[in-house]
Amino acid sequence: MVLSQKLHDAFKGTVERITGPRTVSAFKEKGVLSVTEFVVAGDNLVSKCPTWSWESGEPSKRKPYLPPEKQFLITRNVPCLRRAASVEEEYEAAGGEVLLDGEDNDGWLATHGKPKDNKHDEDDDLPSMEILEISQKNPIRSIPSYFGGEEEEDIPDMAEYDEPDNLIETDPATLQSTYLVAEEPDEDNILRTRTYDVSITYDKYYQTPRVWLTGYDESKMLLQPELVLEDVSQDHAHKTVTIEDHPHLPGKHASVHPCRHGAVMKKIIDVLMSRGVEPEVDKYLFLFLKFVASVIPTIEYDYTMDFDVGSSSNR
């Protein structure tokens, strides 16, 4: 972890300990949520998109300012059919590998070259409204060859263990190979289905929701958090998405850093209001998840919004 990040975490932790949670609504003014508003917005998400549910997480990590059974939101087993890193063709042009963070071993290799600097607005760690339309404008192309991430030397080779207790059950009613990609010979065409557990916590310091990702590979084995970065838009992988301790679950998880969430939400709310739509706070998470989709464009979590985001003034 970079020193500045550590210092900031210490500072943030102290502020969180000594200040109370937000109780006054500043949703329209600042794009942030109070604790009660987070619960209201979460209840609405769970009822409209039932693949999401509230959970209580580790008892030792429970936050006193949230109801015990509504500590965070989670949707599990969300498919991710292709790597965001390989969808973004423009990054391949530069080629080569660039070590983005030389500080220590945690630095990420930008396997698709350094992001181009042109055609992004000045504010490039802030997703703009244009990026929200990303899916329509950038049709998905075929998947180029895959960088499998560094080999983890500690993962024991399966072959070592399969002799002593390999057992063959012969049963004509068992579908052989539920492993979808096993027979695919051509590596480029392999359907690399990963799945994700996506969770949303309340960040007391930034007073916004915060998204966490836990990835699983094609055979449902836990992904190292570094590999999760392949499923993050490369604009964000090296800046806004970091690997940190989950506030309610054990272990390190990838997370979209919430430092600009309030600002982005404020921007989205302003755009809505300029169109004469009065945003309602219980729709906050739908707007939020729509904007998060620009950071993790290939993780197909549900945020269907087939209803108004707010009460339209001309109704």
């Binding site: 993962i155 024991p156 399966m158 399969d162 063959i168 052989q176 492993y179 096993a182 055979s219």
Partner: peptide, 12 residues
Amino acid sequence: HNKGRQVPRSIS
């Protein structure tokens, strides 16, 4: 089954 074979799994 693990990748089409009946073998145990391991994770680090």
